[in-house]
């Protein structure tokens, strides 16, 4: 048990070093959220009417968009490890089998949370004044962590299936696109009927609404449970599929 934790810890350290040393991806991962925040607030913000300050409305959406994009990038190092043979070497060691995957997922989560904190800090500088209390922040953190973990494991599946690091990175665009079809950036009431039906019921919306309500200091249990049900399910499915695909490499290649 301790040995397994030790293995996972070593692999998390390895993946964190990768994040810190791949400067271009690190900069993209950190600057893109900030850039998007400024873009939405100062360029689109004037034209969108949400019944309140657009900054307050859009911050949870930006946080979710960037967390999803960051989580999707977990596919890339997984695919890289497969092509370089690093995974073969780790699999021939008497260590926790999934340690290398856990390393990528947890390191990705930490990087995501760091860039989320940066987005919130920049938002604060330009006037974001959330009414959330400590418990509300805890709820927001918990839901965001669940979302990132679920998306990361799904992304690991893509990485295990992709033939190269380049094709693995395409998963990011799905997660970069989906939040636009939700209440992340504009209220769903403004969308055409068909789109609105999709936007109201797709899984991103309850997560965004949970974050939004928590930051406003008015958490809503029903929405939060819907979000937890969706992404708890995705997490279970993604984790199961990832470990299955990883084990299946026994017989392939």
């Amino acid at each position: 048990m301790f040995a397994a934790l030790d293995d996972a810890g070593l692999m998390i350290g390895r993946s964190l070093r990768h994040h810190l040393r791949a400067l271009d991806t690190l900069l993209l991962g950190v600057l893109l959220p900030v850039f998007l925040l400024l873009l939405f607030v100062y360029i689109f913000g004037g034209a969108v009417h949400t019944g309140g300050a657009y900054l307050t409305y859009v911050v949870p959406g930006i946080v979710l968009l960037c967390a999803g994009f960051g989580a999707a990038n977990t596919a890339v190092p997984v695919a890289q490890d497969l092509t370089t043979g690093a995974i073969d070497r780790f699999r021939s060691l008497p260590i926790l089998r999934s340690a290398v995957l856990v390393g990528h997922v947890v390191a990705g989560l930490l990087r995501n949370l760091a860039s989320t904190v940066l987005v919130l800090a920049v938002a604060f500088v330009i006037g974001f004044r959330p009414a959330a209390g400590p418990l509300d922040w805890l709820l927001a953190l918990a839901v965001l962590t669940l979302y990132v973990l679920a998306m990361s494991w799904l992304s690991v599946c893509f990485g295990l299936l992709a033939s190269s690091a380049e094709s693995a990175s395409s998963f990011g665009f799905v997660l970069l696109f989906l939040p636009y079809l939700s209440s992340a950036f504009v209220p769903v009431e403004t969308m055409p009927r068909v789109l609105r039906g999709f936007a109201e019921h797709q899984p991103m919306t309850p997560v965004i609404e949970t974050l939004r309500a928590a930051m406003a200091g008015t958490p809503d249990a029903a929405t939060a449970w819907t979000a937890v049900a969706w992404f708890g399910g995705v997490l279970a499915l993604g984790y199961a599929l990832a470990t299955y695909l990883f084990a299946r490499r026994q017989t392939a290649g």
Binding site: R14, R17, H18, R21, A22, T83, T84, G85, A86, D88, R89, S92, L93, P94
Partner: peptide, 18 residues
């Protein structure tokens, strides 16, 4: 078996960013 062996595969499995 894993405790007794070491494998050096065809493609170098060393870590570029370490």
């Amino acid at each position: 078996v894993q405790s007794a062996i070491s494998l050096t595969g065809q493609s170098t499995a060393v870590d570029e960013l370490l």
